[in-house]
Nucleic acid binder design. Structure first.
Length: 582
RNA sequence: GCGCUCUUAGCUCAGCAGGAUAGAGCAACAGCCUUCUAAGCUGUGGGUCGGGCGUUCGAAUCGCCCAGAGCGCGCCA
């Protein structure tokens, strides 16, 4: 399809700037801050004036003069200190929306640099219950995976299970202590396993000898001890089962379910390379890689601990090697909270020294922690934090209250109501998280995850459901979508907002920031709701207007659905309502 | 001690390659269902953008200082 509005203006501006011999860097517009004055504004004249020590209004006027000749502008003005305000012709906006409706990608373009990207998110651990602190990495990662695929990249997502570190030794030695020995392969369920881990954790905190025992078992496990391996295998598969259920419910998906343990062989390779290249050295019995400390003090990377066990930094480095060599990764992106910032700086630098990932972009997307009411991050190790399962159950219970009971609405039995409940509850939970910018942490407010009004997932689902309803009614009446005509300000505002979709997706893609899409989606749903109230479809003044509004509504529905999809959120066909709902 | 991040409306957060009247949502208040789903819409009130200094024609945005909060800092992951 043709360029969307904003890009169309930018292209024209670029040519004008070239003609006027101005720096093209500033030849771009943004959505206007002053909707009363314009659709788009260009602040380039101000920036240029500063550099050239000229009057910004003069430069602005020169640009505006040229813009006047463009056929898409309704009006151009230079206001204030030198803002160029651009108002588009209604027909241009309408035509743009018509074209979007015809395009299967709804006007969204592809990346001009398609490549293979490995996404590392989730990061659950064996024997630890998933709690609300795990929400962000999974939910954000899933969304980024979808966005990256949508813009044309090849994506491989990997859960990177924590299954190989000292916690494994801790829990194994705790089970051994309580059961006497590990002659028989244990057959505990996930609840028992988590309980063992909790106890092991408490014991190791208090007791040095317990820590020592755990370290020993870890080294043996990694060294290939058969008994420990078998017991570990059991713990791992039981945990994985529970973890997969959690993710399935959240609609968070992975292409690979690799764990730290899968990197074991590669770990040995990396140690070998490090020694051969002279990158590492012995220090107090451990094998370490020293890092540059010029800008700030950075501790070395410990690849092999003094007891012979591999450190988790080594497994991360080895995993990079595998992703590059076995998967062909050209970009690897990690999603973890800010506490691991230093860790990734360290391993990225070590990887560079080792030369195992040449020309591969390594990126750590940092997000803030999910905090409790005390403002401090939830901790995995202290029990008592609300687990993910409970959160989901609670949100579903709230949803059920506003839905009719099974059988009350024709065609909606137990299964259908349950599915709807789940779709709405998960939308509430995921949107609550995704609407926050990645970087900032947030305080976990239980009630917020079961809220359905305002800036929430269900609000957007509701807008979609209303459009679906209109489409059904139109279909029954034989009304078809037609050419878009923009008369009412609400129609114009909606069409203008729809035109932003390409840029929104591209920004979310380049910044790896789903909240940009969440923000836009909410805004679009809002503008639609205004339109919906002011501009009836079925009772429009003329058949042409009805057909135009129907097209606008349908296009809005499609864009909203696509945006929710990119966020990893489903859009139900209808939103039923309980009879007694006030 | 060193380093990183943060402080914007009563609450939760946007805005930050400097720019025109600092925006949402929630909460509060006042309206709108015999018309496409009121999980909605319309309107009102609410902010010395942590404090100070500086750069600039112009600072929530850039720099320095101060205060407060959080996180991290070689054998936990």
């Amino acid at each position: 399809m043709n360029l969307l509005l904003e890009n169309k203006i930018n292209k024209a501006l670029k040519e004008i700037f070239k003609r006027l011999d101005l720096d093209e860097k500033y030849a771009f517009v943004k959505v206007s801050d002053r909707a009363d004055l314009s659709d788009f504004q260009c602040n380039g004249a101000l920036a240029l004036a500063k550099i050239a020590h000229k009057n910004p209004r003069e430069i602005g006027a020169a640009i505006a003069d040229e813009l006047e000749r463009c056929d898409f502008c309704e009006s151009i003005s230079v206001d204030g200190p030198g803002f160029i305000n651009i108002k588009l012709k209604n027909e241009v906006i309408a035509q743009n929306a018509d074209e979007m409706a015809k395009d299967e990608r709804l006007g969204c373009g592809l990346t001009d640099n398609p490549h293979k990207v490995v996404l590392d998110y989730g990061g659950p651990n064996v024997a630890k219950t998933m709690h609300v602190g795990h929400l962000r990495s999974g939910v954000i990662g899933e969304s980024v995976a979808r966005i990256e695929r949508f813009v044309g990249n090849e994506v491989i997502s990997d859960v990177h299970l924590g299954d190989w570190g000292t916690p494994m030794g801790m829990i194994l030695s705790e089970i051994e202590r309580q059961d006497g020995n590990l002659d028989k392969v244990p057959s505990y369920d996930i609840a028992q396993i988590t309980e063992f881990y909790k106890q092991a954790n408490i014991r190791c905190k208090e007791d040095e000898s317990a820590r020592e025992a755990a370290r020993l078992v870890t080294a043996k496990l990694q060294g290939g001890d058969e008994q420990y391996r078998k017991a570990w295998q059991h713990l791992r598969s039981e945990s994985l089962k529970a973890i997969k259920e959690n993710y399935k419910e959240l609609d968070v998906n992975f292409d690979l379910w690799w764990g730290e343990s899968d990197a074991h062989t590669a770990c040995q390779d990396v140690v070998k390379i490090a020694k051969e290249k002279g990158v590492s050295e012995k220090d107090n019995g451990a094998e370490i890689i020293r890092l540059e400390e010029s800008n700030k003090p950075k501790p070395p990377v410990i690849i092999v601990k003094s007891d012979g066990a591999f450190g988790y930094q080594l497994t991360d480095i080895a995993t990079i090697k595998m992703r590059v060599e076995d998967l062909g990764a050209q970009e690897i992106v990690y999603f973890t909270d800010s506490r691991q910032t230093l860790h990734f700086e360290q391993i990225f630098e070590a990887v560079q020294k080792l030369g195992i990932a040449p020309n591969v972009k390594l990126q750590h997307i940092v997000f803030g922690t999910v905090n409790g009411a005390d403002g401090k991050p939830f901790k995995t190790r202290d029990g008592g934090v609300m687990d993910l399962e409970t959160l989901i159950v609670m949100s579903k219970d709230k949803v059920r209250q506003s839905l009719p009971k099974a059988g009350e609405v024709a065609g909606y039995g137990e299964a259908e109501i349950e599915k709807l409940t789940s779709q709405i509850a998960i939308a509430a939970i995921k949107f609550q998280d995704l609407k926050n910018t990645i970087n900032s942490g947030y305080v976990f407010e239980l009630e917020d995850f079961a809220k359905f009004e305002g800036k929430t997932g269900p609000y957007i689902q509701y807008a979609i459901a209303r459009i679906n309803s209109v489409l059904r009614k139109a279909d029954a009446a034989g009304l078809k979508c037609g050419k878009i005509i923009l008369q009412a300000p609400e129609e114009r505002a909606l069409a203008l907002k729809l035109a932003q979709v390409h840029n929104v997706v591209m920004r979310a893609h380049s910044e790896k920031e789903p909240s940009i899409i969440a923000e836009y989606t909410h805004g679009l749903a809002q503008i639609f709701s205004t339109f919906y109230n002011a501009c009836p479809v079925m009772t429009a003044e003329t058949p042409q207007l009805a057909a135009s509004r129907l097209q606008l509504a349908k296009l809005t529905r499609d864009v909203l659905k696509l945006m929710l999809f990119l966020l990893g959120i489903e859009a139900p066909e209808v939103m039923l309502k309980a009879e007694n709902k006030e």
